[in-house]
Nucleic acid binder design. Structure first.
Lengths: 255, 255
DNA sequence: TCCGATCTGGTCAAAACTGAACACATTTGT
DNA sequence: ACAAATGTGTTCAGTTTTGACCAGATCGGA
């Protein structure tokens, strides 16, 4: 990962991918925000006034059930943003969103992004492509939660966070992990013990240190790698080689 | 349901919501297609040349894993379409898509929809709003698979299909259900037995008849109602759309 | 009408996960 | 330095789920 991740901690890949004209219009509206670990950025059902672009931070999207339990369905790092659907259309978040890793983050008023989305095909492509990739992350999570063991899922989760934590110890208790993974604490403790005994991680009282990343990747299910690959790739043009389709050329409408 | 579902079987709510000018341009390109139950409309990773708009049919989106197992992450009836992300941007489907209920369906070439998406804000709003709702369905499924019992999930699934099957018996074997739900056949058989003994369903050899719909709703988890509500609402303007969680629901049957 | 394929339900044994409770260790705040 | 709060590992006793396998029922095609 080091290779691809050298970008400094004050950039967001989605913002950086904007065409210069859009970026120039958006830039003046960007404001750095800083949230503490665990803070709720937005409640489920809440109205959104800004979209959030993590630079070093990581956000987590949760689905909240009637009984108050909540489970992670996706997370967002500096490859993406929270609130794009709101910016594209809805203004309302179906999810609770919380800060899972502290770090740099900027926000941008919804209306500014709406205007760009309306006027720039390039921006639309970016937002839509990111949204599709986010959808695929959630879909992978459906499969993962149903078909993979707690241990595999935990590895996957640790790897995702490790990619973004710059070698820091991950600040999570077993209890917290159990909520994210939708399992119970006992299962997490067992998986954690097993990983620690295998020399892959070391932890104590809410700090998890990744010791053997390669090892973790081996124990993890495939879901980690698949999702990572998609997020690494989503900015590239889609299936360009297809014959006969020139989507770049705006054909006149029905004339 | 009867109220909202009386629309005839040759309409698709998403198509019907298009503004007249768009609809007029799109209509000449629509072609009815008819697929048999269980047919794969598109493989995971496949290139899409059309979007599909079910009228009476139901499509299922599956995430396929390396070992060949596949699990349902969402389904699409006549409130929506398959291939909209392709139409908006990507042309490639991350999912396998298969026919889960036979019925009317029309398709439309991607390029036609792309043009509309590019030129009409109204069309963009429709497609984006639907996509967001689809995302929320998948997110609900993440929570459901992780936190609800096989019996609850099966009720939810049967209800979703029953809404669309016009009173027909549902043509599914336990084995098939087990794949959709990501559990094993035995668990499905147990849940099915329990539901049958409670007088909620009756089945034999791949035909499941819903006997007591209300009862099923009581036993189902909340996920059914939440997702249904969102799909019923997504065409309304965002200010009024339903965002959050609804009232309490179901206890498990004791068996 | 019979054969073969399919579907369901049952057994059995094992594994995985759950839930509550509690002791101990470590950290934090005073 | 001490008390309180927090995190982890364990126990025990449950339930749920899994996987393999087979018997009987039923259906459809030859």
């Amino acid at each position: 990962m080091p290779k691809a991740e050298v970008a400094d901690l004050t950039s967001n890949r989605l913002l950086d991918a904007l065409e210069p004209a859009s970026r120039k219009r958006i830039d003046p509206h960007l404001r750095p925000v800083s949230f503490k670990l665990g803070v709720t950025v937005c409640e489920a059902g809440g109205l959104l006034r800004h979209a959030y672009f993590p630079q070093g931070a990581v956000l987590s999207l949760l689905t909240v059930l009637e009984d108050g339990s909540a489970i992670e369905t996706a997370n967002i790092g500096r490859e993406g943003a929270f609130g794009l659907f709101a910016a594209m259309y809805s203004r309302v978040s179906f999810n609770r969103c919380l800060v899972q890793l502290e770090g740099g983050m900027v926000r941008c008023p919804i209306e500014v992004l709406q205007t760009e989305f309306r006027n720039s095909e390039h921006v639309r492509d970016l937002f839509v492509s990111y949204s599709e990739t986010l959808l695929s992350q959630v879909q992978q999570t459906v499969a993962c939660n149903a078909l993979h063991s707690t241990e595999e899922r935990m590895c996957r989760w640790l790897l995702m966070m490790h990619d973004r934590a710059e070698g820091e110890a991950l600040p999570y208790t077993h209890e917290f992990l159990s909520h994210m993974l939708g399992t119970n604490r006992k299962s997490v403790t067992l998986a954690a013990l097993s990983l620690q005994r295998a020399g892959l991680i070391r932890y104590s009282r809410g700090k998890i240190q990744i010791v053997d990343r390669r090892g973790l990747e081996r124990v993890s299910c495939e879901c980690y790698a698949i999702v990572k690959k998609r997020f690494d790739a989503f900015l590239k043009p889609p299936a360009t080689a297809v014959a006969g389709n020139s989507r770049r050329r705006g054909k006149p409408l029905s004339s």
